[in-house]
Design a protein around this nucleic acid. Structure first.
Lengths: 345, 345
DNA sequence: GCCTGTTTTTGAAACGTTTCACGAGGTCAT
DNA sequence: ATGACCTCGTGAAACGTTTCAAAAACAGGC
C-alpha cells in the first residue's frame, strides 16, 4: 500500500542509502542521481514514514502543551506564544486538553511519553506534587510548568504572581468601599485559584467579610451558577462585590446578574482575572487582572528548548511575571463610562 | 537510556515475545509469569515506544483536526464535539492550527501524512479544490470537510448552510429599514465567507446598497480596523448597518464603534455570525447567526470514523445543518433591553 | 597506465515493537 | 505407555528509516 524508500530506490535504480541521502543530505549526492530519485519520489507519491524515522532517531521532534481548557482564550494565547517560538526552531507543537480533569491529564501524559515527545509545557490540574508528572521528569523528559510556580525547584517554571493578583483585586474592591466580598472559583486544587484566593484573603482579612463560592470549574456556565447562588442569599448576608478566579466566570456572573436585573456596578461589582480579549467588550466592560499571556507561552517555550538543547546539566529557572489590575466599569464606583484606566493599585 | 522490552524480558527472565503478550494479550500468559513481567516493568519504569509500535502496525491511532483559528471559540467548540466522539472510540485527537494560512496548512498536512494519521477533519483555508488535500485523499487518508460544503462529492462533509445564514442576516437588516448595508469579512477565498456574502447579496441586490469591506482575516483586531474604515466614510455613503462574517469581527466592530461614540444600534446596527458564547455577553448583546457547533464536530467525527472502519467501499455523505438567526440588541430597532427573541426570519 | 585523492554510492546493521508458526511441557482418556 | 489436546512460552522475521564504514567510480598528475 504505502510506498517505502525501497520501492523508490528500485524505481530510480539506486540503493536504499542513496534515497535516504537525497532526503537528508541532498548535497552529498550527484546532481543527476538526485534528480532521478526525486522524480521517482514524485511519480510514486512517496511519503516519509515518521514512525520509522523516529524509531531510528530515538525521539520525536515535537513538544506538547497540556492546558486546562482549550476553550479559554487565556490558554489559546499561551499556545499562540508557544507556537511562535517553536516554529522558529522547527519544532512542532501538539496541544492537549486536560479539561481540568486529572485523569485525562494522566492519559495525555502517558501517551505523550510513549510518543517520546521532546518536552512538555503543562499547567497541571492539581498541585505540582503530581506524581505522574514527577515520573515523566525522572525518566528524563524536560517539563516546564506554565502559570504555576513550582513549590520547589525541580522544574523550570513560568508564572504570574497570583497572590499579588488576588491582592490587587481585593485592595481595589476595598478601596471602592466594599466590605462584604465574595470570591468565586474552583476547584481549590488548582494552584492559581488557591493563590488568587490567598492574595485576596490576605488583604481583606480583618477588614471585610470574605465569602467563598466554590465552583466546579472555571467556565461561563459556572459563573452563571455562582451568580444565582449569590443572588439567592438573604440581603443582609449578600456580598456587594465579587472577585472571580478568571474572566469566564466573571462574564457568566455578569450575564446572570444582568438577567436578574441587578445593576452592575451600582448594586454589585465584579472583578475578573486574565483580561482576555472579550473582557473589555463585555456588556459592562470588565475590570480584570491582566497577565502577559503570549509572553508566558513564549518564555516557557524558550526555557523548554534551552533545557532540551543543554541536554545534561541544566539550571532550572523560575520566571515570575507581575500582574496588573485593569479597572473598567464593572467595578468602578461611581460608574464612569468607558473607563480605560490601567492602574496597579 | 530508555528501557526497552528487551531489558524487561531479561529482568523477568522471559522472552521478548512474552513481554509483548503481557502488554497486549495478558490473558494468554500465566498468572505467575505475568506478575513477574509486570513487576519488572514497574521496577525499570518501562514505557512503550509508540514509534516502534506504529511502525509495526503501519498506522497510528490518531485523527487530526485542522482548524482555521484555535483562538476562535467557534472552532474550540467543534474540537470539543470531535473529542467527545473520539474519546468513546479510544481514538486520540490532535489539533492543528492553520491560522488561515495556506502554507501552514500544507505543512501541517505534510506532517500529518508522515505520521500516518487515520483520518483528518479539516476546514480548509482556500477552496476545497485544494491540491494538497486531494493528494492526501488519493493516497488513502479519509478526510471530512468541516463547515465547508464540498463542491463535488469526493469527501464526506459537514456544513451549515452559509448562503441561508447570509440570507437571514440580510433579510433581517432589510426588515429593520436599512438600505445601505456593509458586509465585512475576508479573505474571500474562505468558502464560508464567500457564501455568507452571497446569501446576503442575493436578498439585498436591487433593494439596498451592499458595500464590501474585505478583511485580511476574521479576528477582533480586523473587526476594529474595518470599523474605522466604515466610520471614516463620508456621511452620505456610510452604511447604517453591517453584517460581519463572524462574531470576532463583529465584536471588534462593536468595540471600535462604541469607542468612537457611535450608538449601537441606534446609529449603526451590527449582525455577527456563529453566536459564540461571548456574543450574548457583549457590551451591546450581539445579534448573530447561530450554528450547531458541537454537533458539527460530533457528526464530522462520526462520519470520519465510519469511513475509517468501513475501509474500502464507503459512500461519501454530505450533511448540511440549518443556521438560525438570533436577534439581540445590536441590530434591533428600536433598541429593546435584554431582548432574547430567537427567530428564523 | 599507475598512483593518489576525492566524490559518489552501496550494503548491512541497528532502532523497539508485534506477530506467528512452533516447540515444550502438562493433562487426560484410552 | 501412547497419542491427542491443551496451555504457555519462544525465537525469528518483519515494519521503514538512518547511519556509517567501506567499496566503487572518477579525476588529475605523473
Amino acid at each position: 500500500m504505502a510506498t517505502s524508500i525501497k520501492e523508490v530506490a528500485q524505481r530510480a535504480g539506486v540503493s536504499l542509502g542513496t534515497v535516504s541521502n537525497v532526503l537528508n543530505q541532498p548535497e552529498r549526492v550527484a546532481e543527476a542521481t538526485r534528480k532521478r530519485v526525486l522524480d521517482a519520489i514524485a511519480e510514486l507519491g512517496y511519503v516519509r514514514n515518521d514512525s520509522a524515522r523516529q524509531l531510528r532517531a530515538g525521539r520525536s521532534r515535537q513538544i506538547a502543551v497540556v492546558v486546562l481548557d482549550v476553550a479559554n482564550p487565556f490558554f489559546t494565547d499561551i499556545v499562540h506564544g508557544a507556537e511562535s517560538v517553536a516554529e522558529e526552531q522547527g519544532v512542532m507543537v501538539v496541544v492537549c486538553n486536560s479539561g481540568e480533569n486529572a485523569d485525562r491529564e494522566r492519559r495525555h501524559l502517558d501517551l505523550l511519553e510513549e510518543q517520546r515527545v521532546r518536552g512538555v509545557l503543562i499547567t497541571p490540574v492539581d498541585d505540582s506534587r503530581n506524581s505522574r508528572l514527577e515520573e515523566l521528569v525522572a525518566r528524563g523528559t524536560p517539563v516546564v510548568l506554565v502559570d504555576h510556580g513550582s513549590g520547589w525547584y525541580s522544574h523550570c517554571s513560568v508564572a504570574v504572581n497570583d497572590v499579588l493578583g488576588g491582592h490587587l483585586a481585593g485592595e481595589h474592591l476595598l478601596a471602592q468601599g466594599h466590605r462584604r466580598i465574595a470570591f468565586a472559583g474552583g476547584p481549590m486544587t488548582i494552584q492559581q485559584v488557591a493563590d488568587r484566593y490567598q492574595g485576596a484573603k490576605l488583604v481583606l482579612d480583618g477588614v471585610a467579610d470574605l465569602i467563598t463560592i466554590t465552583t466546579p470549574n472555571l467556565t461561563v456556565a459556572s459563573g452563571r451558577a455562582a451568580a444565582s447562588q449569590i443572588a439567592d442569599m438573604p440581603g443582609t448576608k449578600r456580598p456587594t462585590a465579587v472577585f472571580c478566579a478568571n474572566d469566564l466566570l466573571a462574564l457568566g456572573m455578569l450575564q446572570e446578574m444582568t438577567r436578574r436585573g441587578v445593576q452592575i456596578p451600582k448594586e454589585f461589582a465584579i472583578v475578573g482575572y486574565d483580561d482576555i480579549e472579550f473582557a473589555a467588550a463585555a456588556a459592562v466592560p470588565l475590570s480584570s487582572v491582566r497577565q502577559p499571556r503570549e509572553q508566558l507561552g513564549r518564555t516557557a517555550t524558550q526555557l523548554l528548548l534551552e533545557e532540551i538543547q543543554a541536554d545534561g546539566h541544566h539550571e532550572h529557572r523560575q520566571v515570575v511575571f507581575q500582574p496588573e489590575l485593569v479597572v473598567r466599569e464593572s467595578s468602578s464606583h461611581p460608574p464612569r463610562r468607558r473607563s480605560r484606566v490601567s492602574s496597579s493599585e
